[in-house]
Amino acid sequence: MAATNLAKLALKYGPIVYTLAQKYGPQVAEQLLKQREPAQRLVAARRERGTARKQALAHADSVVEGTVQQVFHGGQAYWVVFSRNEPVGTHPHTNIPFDALLLNADPARRARPEELRRTVHLPRRPGR
């Protein structure tokens, strides 16, 4: 019964939908592409921010007594990697000198990579 109604609607409105699709289809496709661009930029920026954190943690693991600290400069977040008490790198990479990045940073906020890793510990069911 539903198939019969669907067929009747297709015969009744099919030509109208076809002409409207020919007339407005390119405009609709263009609008969809324009709306997709900002969303893709946002997703790329979020992915890059997460990647910078992971790279900083990996970098801190590879140096002697490595620690990391998140600092902000010009509205942008940077992860500064320290070896002992000396800054050795930033993620994402920037040409801003360490002195400018760490101008108002609190050294007590530095953390070891193990402390910053996000791990989820799920409770085990009893008897297993």
Results as ranks from 00 to 15, higher is better:
residue 64 V to C: 06
residue 86 E to M: 11
residue 125 R to D: 10
residue 78 Y to V: 03
residue 97 P to I: 06
residue 25 G to P: 06
residue 128 R to M: 14
residue 51 T to E: 15
residue 59 H to E: 14
residue 4 T to F: 12
residue 39 A to G: 07
residue 41 R to E: 13
residue 66 G to S: 03
residue 6 L to T: 07
residue 71 V to Y: 00
residue 33 L to S: 06
residue 20 L to D: 10
residue 122 L to Y: 14
residue 116 L to H: 06
residue 118 R to Y: 09
residue 44 A to T: 13
residue 9 L to I: 12
residue 67 T to G: 03
residue 128 R to I: 15
residue 43 V to Q: 09
residue 109 R to N: 09
residue 28 V to R: 05
residue 31 Q to S: 09
residue 81 V to H: 00
residue 127 G to P: 00
residue 12 K to I: 11
residue 57 L to K: 02
residue 104 N to S: 11
residue 45 A to N: 07
residue 52 A to G: 01
residue 24 Y to A: 11
residue 32 L to P: 00
residue 17 V to E: 04
residue 115 E to W: 02
residue 36 R to N: 02
residue 124 R to M: 05
residue 116 L to I: 05
residue 74 G to M: 05
residue 28 V to Y: 12
residue 72 F to S: 13
residue 67 T to F: 08
residue 80 V to Y: 00
residue 40 Q to D: 14
residue 60 A to T: 10
residue 52 A to P: 01
residue 120 V to R: 08
residue 5 N to T: 12
residue 83 S to H: 00
residue 125 R to I: 06
residue 106 D to R: 05
residue 85 N to G: 08
residue 66 G to I: 00
residue 91 H to A: 13
residue 18 Y to E: 15
residue 40 Q to M: 15
residue 29 A to V: 14
residue 86 E to F: 08
residue 52 A to N: 03
residue 83 S to C: 09
residue 92 P to E: 02
residue 88 V to L: 04
residue 38 P to Q: 00
residue 29 A to W: 05
residue 64 V to L: 12
residue 78 Y to N: 03
residue 57 L to E: 11
residue 34 K to L: 15
residue 12 K to E: 14
residue 50 G to E: 10
residue 48 E to G: 15
residue 7 A to P: 00
residue 124 R to E: 12
residue 2 A to N: 12
residue 45 A to L: 08
residue 21 A to S: 04
residue 59 H to V: 01
residue 61 D to K: 02
residue 55 Q to C: 04
residue 12 K to D: 14
residue 53 R to C: 07
residue 114 E to F: 13
residue 57 L to N: 08
residue 103 L to A: 15
residue 63 V to Y: 05
residue 22 Q to R: 11
residue 83 S to G: 05
residue 21 A to F: 03
